[in-house]
Each structure stands twice: as C-alpha cells, then as structure tokens.
Amino acid sequence: MTDNHELPDTRSVVLVVNGERREIDVETRMTLADCLRHKLGKTGTHLGCEHGVCGACTVLVNGHSARSCLMLAVQANDAEITTVEGIASGDGEWHPLQQAFHEHHALQCGFCTAGILTSMVEFLGENPDPAEDEVREALSGNICRCTGYQGIVRAVLDAAGRLRARNGAISP
C-alpha cells in the first residue's frame, strides 16, 4: 500500500435521481447503491449480497437496469437514475407493476421487490407482450426467497396487459 490513502479520494458528481438533480461530493470508492441509500436517502434500493448476484439493488441507469452495488457512484456522474421510489407517477398513483404486485401477492417480505420492479420496468418497456417463459427468463437475475415466484410471474404478465391497455395497444 502506498501513502495515497491518508485522505479520501472524493469528487463532486451530479446525479439526476428520479428526475431530481442532485449535486453531491462522494468518495470515489463509494458504490452507487451506498450513495443512493446513505447520501440521498433513497433507501428503497436494497442491498442483499453486494456482489451482483441477488438483484435486490437493481436500479435503472439511463433507462437500463444495472446492479447499483457493482457501479461506483462516480461512474453515474451525469446519469439519470431511476430507483423504486421513482416508478410511480408523480400524483402518487402506483405504477401498473406495483398495482399488479399488490393484487397478485407477488411479495411477502418485500426485500427483493424494488430490484424486481425496476428490472421489470425495463423488461416490459422492451417487450410489452412477453410470453411466460420470457418473464421467467427476465426474472432470473432477481432472487426472491419468499414467494416461489408464481405470484411474481402472474403479476408481471398482468402488468404487461395493463400497460398495453394504458398505452393504447390492441392485444392480439
């Protein structure tokens, strides 16, 4: 080890979190997940394994799902971040995914839910009318230990239908 660790290496970064521009100083070794939780108070983003396996910390970075435990906050400089706090509409109405998760009992303890919701926002944006096996494949990067996934799969398929209806698409 050399002598360059006496003082923390910090940078000023700009993050646009759920549409809100935040300028903060971060230690460059701080993960995006820890920055969101501890610097910005966005504790809806959960940390499970902290090595990229469980999916609980998944957020959207410029619209693309990413493990926030495997990104440094400094790498998200100038990026738009969407956390689970940002997926409902501004007037407090739940996102169709949240409504469907509620109705289909797609969560029990809720620890994994934030990462699943953000992942599914991206997935349904790219694949508005998925087959069940595509939903299961899309969920494979998120570990849930409560539900056995059946309710989650049903909720995602239901939410896909609600989103199609909302967006005016005609179901085949």
């Binding site: 290496d9 940078r11 460059t28 070794r29 993960t31 820890d34 939780r37 902290e50 440094l72």
Partner: peptide
C-alpha cells in the same frame, strides 16, 4: 463512511 471497496485513487 459507508464504503465497501478498499481505498484507492480513481
């Protein structure tokens, strides 16, 4: 100081 990685210069 909530950090996981060891200290480094970035």
């Amino acid at each position: 100081r909530v950090v996981k990685p060891p200290p480094f210069r970035y």
